[in-house]
Amino acid sequence: MATGMRIGYARVSSSGQRLDVQLDRLSDCNRIFHEKVSGKSTKGRPELQSALDFVRDGDVFVVTKLDRLARSVVDLAGIVQKLEAKKVDLVVLDQGIDTTTMYGRLQFNILAAIGEFERELIKERSTEGRIKAIARGVKFGARPKLKKQEIQDLIRDFEAPGCSKTEIAEHYGISRSSVYRLYTESRPQSV
């Protein structure tokens, strides 16, 4: 069992939400870091970063729910790596995760593996869906800025003597590099 401090972390997503319930549940912690910010990623969460910097070997990092700490497996893995590197245990009250015990470490690793498996399944399904959509003729990416007639006009302007490529770009509201790309991609190919 760890002999260091218990460091709590609480987070709500918006200023309209309250931290009271989480703070009550973390009342046995020696120090609590808390903030009101979105949890989409660990970036932009200064109190979380401060808490992770603050913890030391033998401390226990405590949160009420896993989603208060991380919203993705990638972010969670990064946080856990930081805690492991500092020899800090993790306790998640609502999920019953307690890495100070052998069973808690096992449970946490199983949950993390299931989360990673789920993420890979979603990625695989997305790839399959994209391939099927492409086969049906669906085009991905930004819609073209110019219509077919405008591209034909651009080619005509490009080939006209004395017509500046910068002026063409400004006229069609695109960059000079797009002018050259569209010309190269769309001009009639000589046989």
Rank of each mutant, 00 (worst) to 15 (best):
A2K: 15
Y9G: 04
A10V: 06
A10T: 01
R11G: 14
R11A: 12
S15T: 13
Q17V: 08
L19C: 04
L19W: 05
D20I: 00
V21H: 11
Q22S: 08
R25T: 02
R25I: 00
L26M: 07
L26S: 06
L26E: 04
C29P: 07
C29Q: 09
R31V: 09
R31I: 14
I32N: 02
F33H: 00
K36W: 06
S38G: 14
S38T: 14
G39I: 09
T42G: 00
K43R: 12
G44P: 05
G44C: 08
G44M: 11
G44T: 13
R45K: 13
E47Q: 13
E47G: 00
L48I: 11
Q49T: 09
Q49Y: 03
D53A: 09
D53Q: 14
D53V: 03
F54A: 08
D57I: 04
G58N: 14
F61S: 12
V63E: 04
T64R: 10
T64A: 12
R68N: 08
R68D: 04
R68Y: 03
R68P: 14
R68I: 05
D75K: 02
D75S: 01
A77P: 00
A77C: 03
I79T: 07
Q81L: 00
K82C: 09
L83R: 00
E84G: 04
E84T: 13
E84L: 03
E84K: 14
A85N: 12
A85W: 03
K87M: 06
K87I: 01
V91L: 10
V91E: 05
D94I: 01
D94Q: 14
Q95T: 10
G96H: 15
G96S: 13
I97A: 03
I97K: 08
I97D: 05
D98H: 05
T101F: 09
T101N: 05
M102Q: 13
Y103F: 10
G104A: 06
G104M: 12
Q107C: 04
N109F: 01
N109S: 13
I110C: 04
L111P: 05
A112F: 07
A112I: 02
I114C: 00
I114S: 02
G115T: 04
G115I: 05
E116P: 04
E118T: 01
R119F: 04
E120N: 07
I122H: 03
E124D: 15
E124I: 05
T127K: 15
G129Y: 09
R130F: 08
R130Y: 00
K132M: 01
I134H: 03
I134L: 10
V138E: 01
K139F: 04
F140V: 10
K145L: 15
L146E: 11
Q152G: 15
D153G: 12
L154I: 07
R156N: 13
D157F: 11
F158K: 08
E159C: 14
E159N: 15
A160C: 09
G162K: 15
S164N: 06
S164G: 03
S164P: 00
E167G: 03
E167C: 02
A169L: 14
E170Q: 15
S175F: 06
S178V: 01
V179F: 07
V179A: 07
V179G: 06
Y180D: 14
Y183A: 13
T184V: 07
S186E: 08
R187Y: 07
P188G: 12
P188W: 12
Q189L: 13
Q189V: 15
Q189I: 10
Q189H: 09
V191A: 14
